[in-house]
């Protein structure tokens, strides 16, 4: 009898917790809301001391290259200083300025691959970003607004609307073979890897994860911006 009473009390507490959680989540702001059902590939896969990481096979492989017009170049907004509310000055380095590079050059150096993502170094990321390659920031919105790579788009992988953002991104009709750079906070941050897995599932097969991410970009003095995505 006593056990039954305790079980009933425990069930009441658990039900109350579920109810409170659902109500609180429904009332939460976008940044604090969670989708009830998560979609995180590899949620049970233990990283083997950084083994999630793969080095990029970045040798030129002309056979894999598929020259063509880069669709994103037309869709990208203007210079960093114009699009970002508080863009910082570009770095002194030559990589800070957008260099001209043909799509064939990009694809020769970064051909499409059959992995969810390939990790790239800061030098490679700087090379790509300087050539106007689309860059996605996988960190939380608040962190993005505090500072991000100039022209990077915000894809906060732990916020509730990430799947909607990915769907909208896919709907933009981009060529999945064109390189896309993804980054988060470097170190053991895996947000960009998670975002890459989502995009890979949506048909993108040239996703390049900037391994050392934002801290490395700041160290390099790369072009950055603050404030919300324009």
């Amino acid at each position: 009898m006593s056990l039954r009473r305790h079980l009933l009390e425990a069930a009441t507490l658990v039900l109350a917790a579920i109810l409170c959680a659902l109500v609180a989540n429904a009332l939460a702001s976008r940044e604090r809301k969670l989708a009830l059902v998560g979609s995180y590939p590899n949620a049970l896969k233990v990283p083997e001391n950084g083994a999630v990481r793969q080095e990029a096979p970045l040798e030129a492989t002309p056979a894999a290259a598929a020259p063509g017009k880069l669709p994103f170049e037309e869709k990208r907004p203007g210079p960093a200083t114009a699009s970002a509310p508080k863009a910082s000055a570009p770095s002194q380095g030559s990589e800070a300025k957008t260099s001209s590079s043909s799509p064939a050059d990009l694809l020769r150096r970064f051909p499409p691959h059959d992995k969810p993502y390939v990790e790239i170094s800061g030098d490679d990321a700087a090379w790509l970003i300087a050539r106007g390659v689309l860059t996605l920031d996988a960190r939380r919105t608040k962190v993005y607004e505090e500072g991000h790579i100039a022209l990077a788009r915000s894809f906060p992988v732990w916020e509730s609307d990430i799947d909607a953002r990915v769907t909208a991104f896919v709907g933009e009709g981009r060529d999945g073979a064109i390189p896309v750079v993804l980054y988060c906070s470097g170190g053991d941050c895996e947000d960009s890897h998670l975002l890459a897995q989502k995009l890979f599932g949506a048909g993108f097969n040239n996703l390049l994860v900037y391994r050392d991410g934002w801290p490395d970009w700041v160290k390099r003095g790369g072009s950055s911006a603050t404030g919300p995505e324009s």
């Binding site: 658990v14 109350a16 917790a17 959680a21 989540n25 009830l36 998560g38 995180y40 590939p41 949620a43």
Partner: peptide, 15 residues
């Protein structure tokens, strides 16, 4: 499992 991560994150603190 990936599908349960968010639900757990929502309910456990309330519990």
């Amino acid at each position: 499992p990936g599908a349960l991560v968010n639900l757990m994150a929502l309910v456990m603190p309330w519990l």
